[in-house]
């Protein structure tokens, strides 16, 4: 049965089917279904508390769904631990940036290579040539990612000492360095000014084109969502209320209602 499912879903890179998750009595996500094709940029929007971040937590294995299924590149990934999902090629950033603050910037990137490194403790303690060649290679690759985001000058500073904008960039660089083919960005433009947001929009598009990956992002900044996303999914109270191109979604009455209210209720402001 599982095998049959796998064959059916192999046409899309990522597939969610009827996923649900409750916390106590609260349905955080209900009957969530969607798909992402290779190379697509898809946005996930919705009012605060709509369950957007929970969707990301479910996809990356930080939470286990109560019902439903996820497929990624022909694999059934529901309930797999986070490090396995990361190895399969899904990476994410966090709304409240979670860098490893007491590691240097370059080490934060090198962490992403952990799973690809082929030397072991014996190589390292005996300082065999393999250890040095592998370390040199990942240092070079890591610098490549830092350069892409323009933060190579801070490579040997502690991550905690970076200013906010660079921290956001470092977190994206780290996610990308895992060699993911699906990147989940949780509010990448939060706290950026309009000019920085415009830069970020270009950068995300560039990443997609250069690395041929898909991007699934949560964002409140509508300028970014409308400029960048090819499709937008709107979530409210854990349920998908609209799905379509940015323009379609913008004019959808349900969406306007979710964001602004109906006007029928008494509005205390």
């Amino acid at each position: 049965m599982k095998h049959l499912d796998t064959i059916q879903k192999e046409f899309k890179q990522f597939f969610a089917e009827g996923v649900g998750k409750s916390f106590g009595g609260l349905k955080a996500v209900d009957n969530f279904s969607m798909e992402i094709d290779t190379g697509e940029i898809v946005g996930l929007i919705g009012p605060n508390g709509a369950g957007k971040t929970t969707v990301f937590n479910l996809i990356t294995g930080m939470e286990t769904p109560d019902s439903g299924k996820f497929y990624f590149q022909r694999d059934y990934i529901t309930g797999k631990p986070p490090h396995v999902i990361s190895e399969l090629g899904i990476a994410r950033t966090f709304q409240n940036i979670r860098l490893l603050d007491y590691l240097t910037v370059i080490d934060n990137i090198k962490i992403a290579y952990h799973k690809h490194i082929s030397y072991n403790l014996a190589h390292a303690s005996l300082r065999l040539p393999k250890f040095f060649s592998v370390e040199k290679e990942i240092t070079e690759k890591s610098f490549g990612f830092l350069e892409l985001f323009g933060i190579e000058d801070s490579a040997y500073e502690l991550a905690s000492s970076l200013p906010y904008g660079k921290r956001r960039k470092l977190e994206m660089a780290r996610a990308l360095a895992t060699e993911a083919s699906l990147l989940l960005l949780d509010e990448p433009a939060a706290g950026l000014n309009p000019r920085e947001t415009a830069e970020l929009t270009e950068l995300i598009r560039k990443i997609r084109d250069e690395f041929h990956i898909s991007i699934f992002l949560i964002e409140h900044d509508m300028s970014l969502v409308m400029n960048l996303c090819e499709r937008v999914i709107v979530l409210n109270f854990g349920e998908i209320i609209a799905h379509g191109t940015p323009l379609e979604v913008q004019n959808n009455p349900d969406v306007i209602e979710a964001y602004l209210g109906t006007g029928k209720k008494k509005n205390v402001s």
Binding site: G61, P82, S86, E87, A91, R98, L100, L103, I111, H114
Partner: peptide
């Protein structure tokens, strides 16, 4: 060092 600082983030990096 990554696990000691933030196990969740470390796991998402494939550790």
């Amino acid at each position: 060092r990554a696990v000691s600082q933030d196990p969740d983030a470390a796991a998402l990096m494939g550790i």
